[in-house]
Write a protein that binds this DNA or RNA. Structure first.
Lengths: 343, 343
DNA sequence: CGTTCTATGTGCATCGTTCTACAAACCTGT
DNA sequence: ACAGGTTTGTAGAACGATGCACATAGAACG
């Protein structure tokens, strides 16, 4: 490697010499530790400012904290994660912490790699979004590093905190809204995954859907179609569903991304939305608002989820050992795609 | 912080003891350095495997490399970046390197923070996408850490490599395509930024647009409208443009994200696309393919851009000091939004 | 059988922090 | 004035790698 920045780096030692104090003293000031007088603190602060000192993260990682939080996303595709990130960053605004993202690329191997990479790099904590991992492994992971999980229901977990919206309720809202608008034959398009019962967000939404359908006396119309996450697979599933004999009047999609594909397929098949078909998504991402989509969706406030997860994580890093499980109440945002239809 | 992993960590020393060799020997094996015999290498490898050794990134950062590459994105919104990331990861597949993402959140302050954070964390190199930074600062940054830039034209820069598509050509293709389809009054919707002349991708696209319009004898129709990146601002600009007296027959948008908003506004105003208006985007993101958008766009192959940038960056880390500037030839993907219209 | 050379393996200083143990200085209250 | 306590500052040993400088053992040669 080309030689860079030899001895010109401003270290804690440089600052100490400049301020005329010991290295330990500077370290104390840096860490806001006990045992520094006001004047000394000021003198050190001034020197740091003057010299443009920046702490060396790797060196910190050797001993104490790195002040780095890892965020693991299942993929960057889903625009919902943008909201979460902005919440996380907002919570970290006036702290020393910085976030670094890792992308799980949906594949399980990549997910494990990202996790290992973050542990190797001594992240102080991890915010894990939509983990695809059985609870024992999550516990094992939480034993190694403080962790908060978003979008995974495990209300009894003690080793880590969780932040969720009430997916069961959200799905209920969708069904009630559609029923109220006059739809009866309502199908659900969900995610095809090796199911880790009850924990997955999609499972909760499915349960909510089923329950609400039953409560509305629509048991005979219950239909859940599973599909992989790829556009091609989603389109195929939607096409099959819309061409089938008992064609649904409305489709509830587990996430907006899927709903957009359904709109596309409906469009291709010459179906009007609404009119020939009602569509509802989940997450209320920015694309819902576009007039060509006008997609009714459930807002679970990614901002709040992100903010809370960062808050909980820092609490845990600071020493809390009991678990907290934060739940946001979702809310339906009605748009054109689920307008009432005369039948 | 709660006490975790005390002495149970497997370090290079543990491996050395297990294999019955010196610490230095293990280090040599790790680094593939000169001066290790085959048998010793095997013995050490076996021990590492057996003990599940993982190198401590922070410790490495103190002396040598961290094997971590930073990728800086201007925002996560733009789905185009997904493609870039998958290219980057593909290039790093069988190497020791890992990527970590930082998000610039569009704001300049955040951008600087992310850069600092990455330097503090001793990233071996940085892939900087769409930097908002004048050349002298880029040079200064490149002096501190090996760097490759995507989406910023500075073909004479020596301190860093660049990877781009030919934005000038791409814009030309758009205009030629629209002209061929019968459009004459073609406006461009571009990004409002403190311009760093010529370097910005948008500037290049503007220049290409202007040149192509002139070449087509449409000088009198040249019109570039600038707007900020927020949905609200884009919508306002589009609305104003579409309501103006010399209303354009077609709009060329500097990126798909903007084009989707334009489609939305046209939709709201009751205009048909195509028919009343032609729209073309840039980047050929997944959303273009949805039937409700059917957006004609320029494909600049984010995959290739990502792959090349990772390749170049590693070359630079390994010692190359001359600059390379890689340019991809863009290609137009025609969809419904720019269909010929009888006039 | 020395001498020189090469290949292989080791010892240890080093990187920039943190933090424990300790020294020094300063208060108190008798 | 002195024991005891508190506050403020310092010395120096870690942390887990890297990589230079060196030791040692054979090999090759005259």
């Amino acid at each position: 490697m080309a030689p860079r920045q030899k001895s010109d780096r401003v270290t804690i030692k440089t600052v100490a010499e400049d301020a005329g104090v010991s290295v330990s003293a500077v370290s104390k000031v840096l860490r806001d530790a006990y045992g520094v007088s006001g004047p000394l603190r000021e003198r050190v602060r001034a020197s740091m400012e003057k010299l443009g000192y920046r702490p060396h993260a790797a060196a910190r990682g050797m001993r104490g904290q790195t002040y780095t939080l890892g965020v693991i996303l299942p993929d960057i595709h889903n625009p919902f994660f943008t909201d979460i990130m902005s919440g996380v960053n907002a919570a970290l605004e006036r702290t020393q912490y910085q976030t670094l993202l890792g992308i799980g690329q949906s594949s399980l191997g990549a997910q494990q790699e990202v996790i290992d990479a973050m542990i190797d790099r001594q992240m102080d904590g991890i915010i894990f979004i939509g983990p695809r991992m059985p609870p024992p492994e999550l516990d094992a992971l939480a034993a190694k590093v403080p962790m908060t999980i978003i979008a995974n229901h495990s209300p009894t977990a003690q080793a880590y905190d969780t932040v969720n919206n009430d997916d069961f309720l959200g799905a209920t809202l969708v069904v009630q809204h559609l029923v109220h608008a006059g739809y009866r034959n309502i199908a659900m398009l969900s995610l095809d995954l090796p199911p880790i019962e009850q924990l997955q967000v999609t499972t909760q939404r499915e349960l909510g859907y089923r329950q609400a359908m039953e409560d509305a006396g629509l048991r005979q119309y219950i239909k859940v179609v599973m599909s992989e996450q790829t556009p091609r697979a989603i389109q195929a599933a939607a096409r099959q569903l819309l061409r089938s004999r008992g064609r649904p009047e409305a489709i509830f999609c587990w996430t907006d991304f899927v709903a957009l594909e359904v709109l596309s397929v409906a469009h291709e098949l010459g179906m009007k939305v609404p009119g020939d078909l009602g569509v509802v998504g989940y997450d209320n991402t920015t694309y819902c608002d576009l007039a060509q989509n006008a997609l009714t969706s459930i807002d679970q406030s990614g901002q709040v989820l992100g903010l809370q997860s960062a808050r909980l994580l820092i609490e845990r890093i600071k020493g809390r050992t009991t678990a907290e499980h934060f739940v946001v109440t979702p809310r339906l945002v009605a748009r054109n795609s689920s307008q009432p239809v005369a039948r």
